[in-house]
Design a protein around this nucleic acid. Structure first.
Lengths: 223, 223
DNA sequence: CATAATAGTGTATTTTTTACACTTAATTTT
DNA sequence: AAAATTAAGTGTAAAAAATACACTATTATG
Protein backbone atom coordinates (compact mmCIF):
# COMPACT_ATOMS: atom_id res chain seq x y z
CA UNK A 1 0.00 0.00 0.00
CA UNK A 2 3.06 2.23 -0.10
CA UNK A 3 5.07 0.83 -2.94
CA UNK A 4 7.15 3.90 -3.88
CA UNK A 5 10.31 3.61 -1.84
CA UNK A 6 13.57 5.56 -1.89
CA UNK A 7 16.88 5.49 -0.04
CA UNK A 8 16.49 9.11 0.96
CA UNK A 9 13.39 11.12 1.87
CA UNK A 10 11.71 12.75 -1.12
CA UNK A 11 9.42 15.73 -0.94
CA UNK A 12 6.16 15.80 -2.86
CA UNK A 13 6.04 18.36 -5.67
CA UNK A 14 2.96 20.21 -6.83
CA UNK A 15 2.18 23.05 -9.15
CA UNK A 16 -0.24 25.84 -8.22
CA UNK A 17 -1.74 28.22 -10.73
CA UNK A 18 -2.79 31.82 -10.21
CA UNK A 19 -5.05 32.46 -13.18
CA UNK A 20 -5.94 36.13 -13.62
CA UNK A 21 -8.62 37.66 -15.73
CA UNK A 22 -10.44 40.95 -15.84
CA UNK A 23 -14.03 40.82 -14.73
CA UNK A 24 -16.31 43.81 -14.27
CA UNK A 25 -13.37 46.19 -14.61
CA UNK A 26 -11.41 44.48 -11.86
CA UNK A 27 -8.55 42.02 -11.68
CA UNK A 28 -9.95 38.65 -10.65
CA UNK A 29 -8.44 35.31 -9.78
CA UNK A 30 -9.75 31.79 -10.18
CA UNK A 31 -10.12 29.79 -6.96
CA UNK A 32 -11.42 26.35 -6.15
CA UNK A 33 -13.03 25.17 -2.95
CA UNK A 34 -11.11 22.20 -1.58
CA UNK A 35 -13.01 18.91 -1.26
CA UNK A 36 -10.63 17.21 1.17
CA UNK A 37 -8.35 18.02 4.10
CA UNK A 38 -6.16 19.80 4.84
CA UNK A 39 -7.97 23.13 4.56
CA UNK A 40 -11.15 21.22 3.61
CA UNK A 41 -13.85 23.59 2.28
CA UNK A 42 -11.26 26.36 2.07
CA UNK A 43 -10.65 28.33 -1.11
CA UNK A 44 -7.32 27.66 -2.79
CA UNK A 45 -5.44 28.09 -6.03
CA UNK A 46 -6.01 25.26 -8.49
CA UNK A 47 -3.08 22.84 -8.64
CA UNK A 48 -1.90 19.39 -7.73
CA UNK A 49 0.84 16.79 -7.72
CA UNK A 50 3.35 16.42 -10.52
CA UNK A 51 3.01 13.09 -12.33
CA UNK A 52 6.16 11.00 -12.85
CA UNK A 53 6.33 11.57 -16.59
CA UNK A 54 5.07 15.08 -17.13
CA UNK A 55 6.94 18.37 -17.23
CA UNK A 56 6.12 21.05 -14.71
CA UNK A 57 4.32 23.28 -17.16
CA UNK A 58 2.25 20.36 -18.42
CA UNK A 59 1.32 19.56 -14.87
CA UNK A 60 0.08 23.10 -14.33
CA UNK A 61 -1.99 23.01 -17.52
CA UNK A 62 -3.38 19.56 -16.74
CA UNK A 63 -4.39 20.47 -13.20
CA UNK A 64 -6.03 23.65 -14.39
CA UNK A 65 -7.99 21.73 -17.01
CA UNK A 66 -8.97 18.93 -14.64
CA UNK A 67 -10.06 21.15 -11.80
CA UNK A 68 -11.67 23.97 -13.70
CA UNK A 69 -12.20 22.88 -17.31
CA UNK A 70 -10.12 25.82 -18.54
CA UNK A 71 -7.58 25.45 -21.33
CA UNK A 72 -5.69 27.70 -23.69
CA UNK A 73 -4.37 30.25 -21.21
CA UNK A 74 -1.07 32.12 -21.24
CA UNK A 75 1.13 30.43 -18.63
CA UNK A 76 4.45 31.36 -17.07
CA UNK A 77 6.46 30.01 -14.18
CA UNK A 78 6.41 32.34 -11.18
CA UNK A 79 8.44 31.01 -8.24
CA UNK A 80 8.99 27.83 -6.29
CA UNK A 81 7.76 27.78 -2.72
CA UNK A 82 9.44 25.25 -0.47
CA UNK A 83 9.31 26.20 3.20
CA UNK A 84 9.42 22.84 5.05
CA UNK A 85 6.22 23.52 6.98
CA UNK A 86 4.05 24.94 4.22
CA UNK A 87 1.85 21.84 4.15
CA UNK A 88 0.79 20.06 7.36
CA UNK A 89 0.74 16.58 5.74
CA UNK A 90 4.26 16.17 4.48
CA UNK A 91 7.02 18.14 2.84
CA UNK A 92 5.49 19.63 -0.29
CA UNK A 93 7.33 21.88 -2.66
CA UNK A 94 5.14 23.90 -4.98
CA UNK A 95 6.21 25.29 -8.32
CA UNK A 96 3.85 28.24 -8.74
CA UNK A 97 2.69 29.47 -12.13
CA UNK A 98 0.66 32.46 -13.09
CA UNK A 99 -1.70 32.48 -16.01
CA UNK A 100 -3.69 35.07 -17.93
CA UNK A 101 -6.80 34.85 -20.07
CA UNK A 102 -9.60 37.11 -21.26
CA UNK A 103 -12.78 36.54 -19.27
CA UNK A 104 -14.98 35.83 -22.29
CA UNK A 105 -13.57 32.41 -23.12
CA UNK A 106 -13.71 31.20 -19.60
CA UNK A 107 -16.60 29.29 -18.15
CA UNK A 108 -15.05 27.40 -15.27
CA UNK A 109 -16.65 24.09 -14.27
CA UNK A 110 -16.04 22.26 -11.03
CA UNK A 111 -13.86 19.20 -11.57
CA UNK A 112 -13.11 16.07 -9.62
CA UNK A 113 -10.95 17.57 -6.89
CA UNK A 114 -12.86 20.78 -6.53
CA UNK A 115 -16.36 21.19 -5.15
CA UNK A 116 -16.69 24.69 -6.57
CA UNK A 117 -14.78 26.92 -8.94
CA UNK A 118 -15.24 30.66 -8.83
CA UNK A 119 -13.75 33.98 -9.86
CA UNK A 120 -12.91 36.41 -7.05
CA UNK A 121 -12.05 40.05 -7.47
CA UNK A 122 -8.64 40.69 -5.91
CA UNK A 123 -10.14 43.28 -3.59
CA UNK A 124 -12.69 40.80 -2.22
CA UNK A 125 -10.72 37.63 -1.59
CA UNK A 126 -11.78 34.94 0.86
CA UNK A 127 -9.28 33.31 3.23
CA UNK A 128 -6.93 31.11 1.26
CA UNK A 129 -5.38 27.74 2.07
CA UNK A 130 -1.66 27.11 2.66
CA UNK A 131 0.69 29.93 1.66
CA UNK A 132 -1.50 30.77 -1.31
CA UNK A 133 -1.81 34.41 -0.22
CA UNK A 134 1.96 34.72 -0.67
CA UNK A 135 1.80 33.13 -4.10
CA UNK A 136 -1.00 35.39 -5.17
CA UNK A 137 0.76 38.47 -3.90
CA UNK A 138 3.94 37.64 -5.78
CA UNK A 139 1.96 36.85 -8.91
CA UNK A 140 0.26 40.23 -8.80
CA UNK A 141 3.60 41.98 -8.35
CA UNK A 142 5.04 40.11 -11.32
CA UNK A 143 2.06 41.00 -13.42
CA UNK A 144 2.45 44.67 -12.60
CA UNK A 145 6.15 44.88 -13.33
CA UNK A 146 6.03 42.74 -16.43
CA UNK A 147 3.38 45.00 -17.89
CA UNK A 148 6.07 47.65 -18.42
CA UNK A 149 8.56 45.59 -20.39
CA UNK A 150 6.52 42.95 -22.17
CA UNK A 151 3.30 42.35 -24.04
CA UNK A 152 1.59 40.23 -21.38
CA UNK A 153 -1.37 42.61 -21.29
CA UNK A 154 -2.45 41.28 -24.68
CA UNK A 155 -3.15 37.91 -23.02
CA UNK A 156 -6.02 39.54 -21.14
CA UNK A 157 -7.97 40.75 -24.16
CA UNK A 158 -9.70 38.80 -26.91
CA UNK A 159 -8.06 37.93 -30.19
CA UNK A 160 -9.43 41.14 -31.64
CA UNK A 161 -9.79 44.10 -29.34
CA UNK A 162 -10.17 47.86 -29.30
CA UNK A 163 -7.50 50.21 -28.03
CA UNK A 164 -9.97 51.29 -25.37
CA UNK A 165 -10.24 47.74 -24.06
CA UNK A 166 -6.48 47.38 -24.02
CA UNK A 167 -6.07 50.67 -22.20
CA UNK A 168 -8.55 49.50 -19.59
CA UNK A 169 -6.38 46.42 -18.96
CA UNK A 170 -3.32 48.58 -18.39
CA UNK A 171 -5.25 50.90 -16.11
CA UNK A 172 -6.68 48.09 -14.02
CA UNK A 173 -3.34 46.35 -13.53
CA UNK A 174 -1.51 49.59 -12.75
CA UNK A 175 -4.33 50.91 -10.63
CA UNK A 176 -4.32 54.37 -12.19
CA UNK A 177 -5.87 56.10 -15.20
CA UNK A 178 -3.77 56.70 -18.31
CA UNK A 179 -3.92 59.45 -20.89
CA UNK A 180 -5.75 58.20 -23.94
CA UNK A 181 -3.66 59.92 -26.59
CA UNK A 182 -0.34 59.01 -25.01
CA UNK A 183 -1.42 55.42 -24.52
CA UNK A 184 -2.43 55.02 -28.15
CA UNK A 185 0.77 56.65 -29.33
CA UNK A 186 2.79 54.24 -27.17
CA UNK A 187 0.95 51.07 -28.17
CA UNK A 188 0.97 51.86 -31.88
CA UNK A 189 4.67 52.77 -31.77
CA UNK A 190 5.41 49.16 -30.77
CA UNK A 191 4.42 48.11 -34.28
CA UNK A 192 2.88 44.91 -32.97
CA UNK A 193 -0.72 45.57 -33.97
CA UNK A 194 -2.59 45.12 -37.21
CA UNK A 195 -6.03 46.55 -37.90
CA UNK A 196 -8.45 43.66 -38.27
CA UNK A 197 -10.48 45.70 -40.72
CA UNK A 198 -13.67 45.27 -38.73
CA UNK A 199 -15.15 47.59 -36.15
CA UNK A 200 -17.18 47.18 -33.02
CA UNK A 201 -20.94 47.05 -33.41
CA UNK A 202 -23.90 47.02 -31.10
CA UNK A 203 -22.42 49.57 -28.75
CA UNK A 204 -24.31 52.75 -28.04
CA UNK A 205 -21.55 55.03 -29.19
CA UNK A 206 -19.08 55.48 -32.00
CA UNK A 207 -17.71 52.03 -32.87
CA UNK A 208 -13.99 51.49 -32.33
CA UNK A 209 -11.62 49.86 -34.77
CA UNK A 210 -10.71 46.30 -33.89
CA UNK A 211 -7.05 45.39 -33.79
CA UNK A 212 -5.23 42.09 -33.54
CA UNK A 213 -1.64 41.12 -32.81
CA UNK A 214 0.46 40.93 -35.96
CA UNK A 215 2.08 37.79 -34.51
CA UNK A 216 -0.60 36.24 -32.28
CA UNK A 217 0.56 34.13 -29.37
CA UNK A 218 4.07 35.60 -29.26
CA UNK A 219 5.23 37.31 -26.09
CA UNK A 220 7.45 40.30 -26.85
CA UNK A 221 9.98 41.99 -24.62
CA UNK A 222 10.17 45.76 -25.01
CA UNK A 223 13.07 48.24 -24.83
CA UNK B 1 17.62 -0.43 2.68
CA UNK B 2 14.93 1.81 1.15
CA UNK B 3 12.96 2.96 4.13
CA UNK B 4 11.37 6.11 2.72
CA UNK B 5 8.08 4.96 1.22
CA UNK B 6 5.12 6.84 -0.20
CA UNK B 7 1.72 5.99 -1.70
CA UNK B 8 2.57 7.94 -4.85
CA UNK B 9 5.84 8.39 -6.71
CA UNK B 10 7.87 11.36 -5.47
CA UNK B 11 10.53 13.12 -7.48
CA UNK B 12 13.85 14.04 -5.94
CA UNK B 13 14.45 17.77 -5.55
CA UNK B 14 17.80 19.49 -5.77
CA UNK B 15 19.08 23.03 -5.91
CA UNK B 16 21.77 24.13 -8.33
CA UNK B 17 23.70 27.36 -7.98
CA UNK B 18 25.17 29.51 -10.73
CA UNK B 19 27.67 31.67 -8.84
CA UNK B 20 29.04 34.54 -10.91
CA UNK B 21 32.00 36.72 -10.24
CA UNK B 22 34.24 38.97 -12.27
CA UNK B 23 37.73 37.68 -12.84
CA UNK B 24 40.35 39.29 -15.09
CA UNK B 25 37.75 41.63 -16.55
CA UNK B 26 35.43 38.79 -17.55
CA UNK B 27 32.28 37.23 -16.17
CA UNK B 28 33.18 33.90 -14.62
CA UNK B 29 31.20 31.07 -13.11
CA UNK B 30 32.06 28.57 -10.40
CA UNK B 31 32.01 24.91 -11.45
CA UNK B 32 32.80 21.66 -9.69
CA UNK B 33 34.09 18.46 -11.18
CA UNK B 34 31.73 15.62 -10.30
CA UNK B 35 33.17 12.75 -8.24
CA UNK B 36 30.47 10.19 -9.04
CA UNK B 37 28.14 9.13 -11.86
CA UNK B 38 26.17 10.24 -13.72
CA UNK B 39 28.43 12.63 -15.59
CA UNK B 40 31.35 11.44 -13.49
CA UNK B 41 34.41 13.70 -13.95
CA UNK B 42 32.23 16.21 -15.79
CA UNK B 43 32.05 19.86 -14.79
CA UNK B 44 28.74 20.92 -13.25
CA UNK B 45 27.10 23.65 -11.22
CA UNK B 46 27.42 23.14 -7.48
CA UNK B 47 24.21 21.86 -5.89
CA UNK B 48 22.54 18.89 -4.31
CA UNK B 49 19.51 17.32 -2.73
CA UNK B 50 17.11 19.24 -0.53
CA UNK B 51 17.09 17.97 3.05
CA UNK B 52 13.74 17.18 4.66
CA UNK B 53 13.81 20.12 7.06
CA UNK B 54 15.55 22.89 5.20
CA UNK B 55 14.15 25.63 2.99
CA UNK B 56 15.19 25.79 -0.65
CA UNK B 57 17.39 28.84 -0.23
CA UNK B 58 19.11 27.24 2.77
CA UNK B 59 19.75 24.18 0.70
CA UNK B 60 21.43 26.24 -1.99
CA UNK B 61 23.62 28.05 0.54
CA UNK B 62 24.50 24.81 2.33
CA UNK B 63 25.44 22.98 -0.86
CA UNK B 64 27.55 25.89 -2.02
CA UNK B 65 29.37 25.98 1.31
CA UNK B 66 29.85 22.20 1.46
CA UNK B 67 31.09 21.80 -2.08
CA UNK B 68 33.14 24.94 -2.48
CA UNK B 69 33.70 26.48 0.96
CA UNK B 70 32.11 29.72 -0.20
CA UNK B 71 29.69 31.66 2.01
CA UNK B 72 28.22 35.13 2.18
CA UNK B 73 27.13 35.49 -1.43
CA UNK B 74 24.12 37.31 -2.81
CA UNK B 75 21.57 34.62 -3.74
CA UNK B 76 18.32 34.70 -5.66
CA UNK B 77 15.98 32.04 -7.02
CA UNK B 78 16.17 31.75 -10.80
CA UNK B 79 13.85 29.09 -12.21
CA UNK B 80 12.79 25.52 -11.58
CA UNK B 81 13.82 22.93 -14.13
CA UNK B 82 11.71 19.81 -14.19
CA UNK B 83 11.78 18.01 -17.54
CA UNK B 84 11.13 14.33 -16.69
CA UNK B 85 14.32 13.13 -18.41
CA UNK B 86 16.77 15.73 -17.20
CA UNK B 87 18.55 13.20 -14.97
CA UNK B 88 19.19 9.61 -16.08
CA UNK B 89 18.89 8.15 -12.57
CA UNK B 90 15.41 9.13 -11.53
CA UNK B 91 13.01 12.07 -11.80
CA UNK B 92 14.88 15.04 -10.37
CA UNK B 93 13.48 18.51 -10.20
CA UNK B 94 16.03 21.25 -9.72
CA UNK B 95 15.33 24.64 -8.22
CA UNK B 96 18.06 26.77 -9.75
CA UNK B 97 19.55 29.80 -8.01
CA UNK B 98 21.99 32.36 -9.18
CA UNK B 99 24.50 34.01 -6.91
CA UNK B 100 26.90 36.93 -7.11
CA UNK B 101 30.07 37.79 -5.23
CA UNK B 102 33.20 39.89 -5.73
CA UNK B 103 36.16 37.73 -6.68
CA UNK B 104 38.42 38.95 -3.88
CA UNK B 105 36.65 37.18 -1.03
CA UNK B 106 36.42 33.91 -2.83
CA UNK B 107 38.95 31.16 -2.47
CA UNK B 108 37.01 28.06 -3.43
CA UNK B 109 38.11 24.77 -1.89
CA UNK B 110 37.10 21.33 -3.10
CA UNK B 111 34.55 19.74 -0.75
CA UNK B 112 33.30 16.25 -0.11
CA UNK B 113 31.23 15.79 -3.27
CA UNK B 114 33.54 17.65 -5.58
CA UNK B 115 36.97 16.60 -6.71
CA UNK B 116 37.84 20.04 -7.99
CA UNK B 117 36.37 23.50 -7.83
CA UNK B 118 37.30 26.11 -10.37
CA UNK B 119 36.32 29.44 -11.91
CA UNK B 120 35.64 29.47 -15.65
CA UNK B 121 35.28 32.52 -17.82
CA UNK B 122 31.92 32.39 -19.58
CA UNK B 123 33.61 32.54 -22.95
CA UNK B 124 35.72 29.47 -22.18
CA UNK B 125 33.34 26.99 -20.62
CA UNK B 126 33.91 23.24 -20.58
CA UNK B 127 31.10 20.81 -21.39
CA UNK B 128 28.60 20.81 -18.58
CA UNK B 129 26.60 18.00 -17.00
CA UNK B 130 22.79 17.62 -17.22
CA UNK B 131 20.88 20.66 -18.46
CA UNK B 132 23.30 22.97 -16.71
CA UNK B 133 24.03 24.89 -19.92
CA UNK B 134 20.36 25.91 -19.98
CA UNK B 135 20.48 27.01 -16.37
CA UNK B 136 23.61 29.02 -16.95
CA UNK B 137 22.19 30.65 -20.03
CA UNK B 138 19.04 31.71 -18.23
CA UNK B 139 21.07 32.96 -15.28
CA UNK B 140 23.17 35.14 -17.52
CA UNK B 141 20.07 36.56 -19.20
CA UNK B 142 18.55 37.35 -15.82
CA UNK B 143 21.75 39.03 -14.70
CA UNK B 144 21.79 41.22 -17.76
CA UNK B 145 18.18 42.35 -17.55
CA UNK B 146 18.19 42.83 -13.80
CA UNK B 147 21.18 45.13 -14.11
CA UNK B 148 18.88 47.76 -15.59
CA UNK B 149 16.28 47.91 -12.88
CA UNK B 150 18.04 46.88 -9.67
CA UNK B 151 21.25 47.27 -7.74
CA UNK B 152 22.55 43.71 -8.23
CA UNK B 153 25.77 45.02 -9.76
CA UNK B 154 26.85 46.16 -6.29
CA UNK B 155 27.01 42.48 -5.25
CA UNK B 156 29.96 42.06 -7.61
CA UNK B 157 32.22 44.72 -6.07
CA UNK B 158 33.83 44.87 -2.66
CA UNK B 159 32.29 46.65 0.29
CA UNK B 160 34.12 49.80 -0.72
CA UNK B 161 34.72 50.41 -4.38
CA UNK B 162 35.58 53.09 -6.90
CA UNK B 163 33.17 54.30 -9.54
CA UNK B 164 35.61 53.01 -12.12
CA UNK B 165 35.37 49.50 -10.71
CA UNK B 166 31.59 49.69 -10.67
CA UNK B 167 31.51 50.94 -14.24
CA UNK B 168 33.68 48.00 -15.27
CA UNK B 169 31.10 45.61 -13.78
CA UNK B 170 28.32 47.21 -15.81
CA UNK B 171 30.41 47.15 -18.96
CA UNK B 172 31.34 43.50 -18.56
CA UNK B 173 27.80 42.33 -17.93
CA UNK B 174 26.37 44.41 -20.75
CA UNK B 175 29.21 43.61 -23.07
CA UNK B 176 29.72 47.18 -24.21
CA UNK B 177 31.63 50.26 -23.04
CA UNK B 178 29.80 53.05 -21.23
CA UNK B 179 30.43 56.77 -21.15
CA UNK B 180 32.24 57.66 -17.93
CA UNK B 181 30.49 60.96 -17.22
CA UNK B 182 27.03 59.66 -17.96
CA UNK B 183 27.63 56.56 -15.87
CA UNK B 184 28.75 58.56 -12.85
CA UNK B 185 25.85 60.96 -13.21
CA UNK B 186 23.43 58.01 -13.31
CA UNK B 187 24.89 56.11 -10.37
CA UNK B 188 25.18 59.16 -8.15
CA UNK B 189 21.63 60.25 -9.01
CA UNK B 190 20.37 57.03 -7.38
CA UNK B 191 21.41 58.47 -4.01
CA UNK B 192 22.47 55.05 -2.79
CA UNK B 193 26.17 55.75 -2.32
CA UNK B 194 28.16 57.35 0.47
CA UNK B 195 31.78 58.40 0.19
CA UNK B 196 33.86 56.22 2.48
CA UNK B 197 36.26 59.12 3.06
CA UNK B 198 39.25 57.03 2.00
CA UNK B 199 40.86 56.80 -1.42
CA UNK B 200 42.64 54.15 -3.39
CA UNK B 201 46.38 53.83 -2.89
CA UNK B 202 49.16 51.88 -4.49
CA UNK B 203 47.89 52.37 -7.99
CA UNK B 204 50.11 54.01 -10.60
CA UNK B 205 47.71 56.82 -11.33
CA UNK B 206 45.52 59.35 -9.64
CA UNK B 207 43.78 57.55 -6.76
CA UNK B 208 39.99 57.31 -6.93
CA UNK B 209 37.56 58.03 -4.12
CA UNK B 210 36.18 54.94 -2.44
CA UNK B 211 32.42 54.68 -2.05
CA UNK B 212 30.18 52.32 -0.13
CA UNK B 213 26.46 51.57 -0.20
CA UNK B 214 24.52 53.82 2.18
CA UNK B 215 22.45 50.75 3.13
CA UNK B 216 24.78 47.79 2.63
CA UNK B 217 23.21 44.44 1.82
CA UNK B 218 19.91 45.90 0.60
CA UNK B 219 18.82 45.20 -2.95
CA UNK B 220 17.04 48.18 -4.47
CA UNK B 221 14.65 48.26 -7.39
CA UNK B 222 14.95 51.30 -9.62
CA UNK B 223 12.38 53.38 -11.52
C1' DC C 1 -33.54 65.85 -33.38
C1' DA C 2 -31.26 66.37 -29.09
C1' DT C 3 -28.55 63.68 -25.80
C1' DA C 4 -25.32 60.34 -24.24
C1' DA C 5 -21.36 57.68 -24.76
C1' DT C 6 -16.95 56.45 -26.33
C1' DA C 7 -13.61 56.91 -30.51
C1' DG C 8 -10.27 59.36 -32.51
C1' DT C 9 -6.69 62.96 -33.24
C1' DG C 10 -1.81 66.78 -32.62
C1' DT C 11 1.15 69.96 -30.41
C1' DA C 12 3.90 72.27 -27.00
C1' DT C 13 6.53 71.52 -22.70
C1' DT C 14 9.25 69.03 -19.67
C1' DT C 15 12.27 65.45 -18.57
C1' DT C 16 15.59 62.14 -19.67
C1' DT C 17 19.22 60.42 -22.33
C1' DT C 18 23.05 60.91 -25.04
C1' DA C 19 27.35 62.73 -27.03
C1' DC C 20 31.52 64.71 -26.24
C1' DA C 21 37.17 66.73 -24.33
C1' DC C 22 40.05 68.54 -21.22
C1' DT C 23 42.43 69.02 -16.53
C1' DT C 24 44.15 66.58 -12.22
C1' DA C 25 46.89 63.57 -9.32
C1' DA C 26 49.41 59.85 -8.60
C1' DT C 27 53.31 56.43 -10.35
C1' DT C 28 56.98 55.13 -13.52
C1' DT C 29 60.50 56.00 -16.76
C1' DT C 30 64.26 58.48 -18.54
C1' DA D 1 64.05 66.39 -11.68
C1' DA D 2 61.58 66.36 -15.82
C1' DA D 3 58.68 63.80 -18.92
C1' DA D 4 55.57 60.15 -19.80
C1' DT D 5 51.91 57.11 -18.37
C1' DT D 6 47.61 55.98 -16.32
C1' DA D 7 43.16 56.45 -14.70
C1' DA D 8 40.22 60.11 -12.00
C1' DG D 9 37.32 63.69 -12.18
C1' DT D 10 34.28 67.30 -14.20
C1' DG D 11 29.85 70.25 -17.40
C1' DT D 12 27.19 71.51 -21.29
C1' DA D 13 24.56 71.26 -25.46
C1' DA D 14 21.64 68.42 -28.49
C1' DA D 15 18.45 64.77 -29.22
C1' DA D 16 14.94 61.79 -27.78
C1' DA D 17 11.28 60.39 -24.88
C1' DA D 18 7.57 61.30 -21.79
C1' DT D 19 3.99 64.16 -20.38
C1' DA D 20 0.06 67.40 -20.29
C1' DC D 21 -3.77 68.83 -22.46
C1' DA D 22 -9.19 69.72 -25.48
C1' DC D 23 -11.85 69.31 -29.14
C1' DT D 24 -14.41 66.82 -33.12
C1' DA D 25 -16.55 62.37 -34.91
C1' DT D 26 -19.74 58.53 -34.98
C1' DT D 27 -22.93 55.52 -33.31
C1' DA D 28 -27.23 54.35 -30.37
C1' DT D 29 -31.04 55.98 -27.48
C1' DG D 30 -34.94 58.71 -25.90
Amino acid sequence: MAPFCYDYPHPAVTTDIALFTILEDKLAILLIRRRSPPFQHCWALPGGFVEPDEGLENCALRELAEETGITGVYLEQLYTFGQPDRDPRERIISVAYYALAPADILAPVAGSDAAEVCWFALDALPDLAFDHPDILCLAQQRLRTKLDYSTIAFSLVNETFTLGELQKVYEIIRGEPLDKRNFRKYILSLNLLAESGASQHGCNHRPAKLYRLAQPGTLHYLR
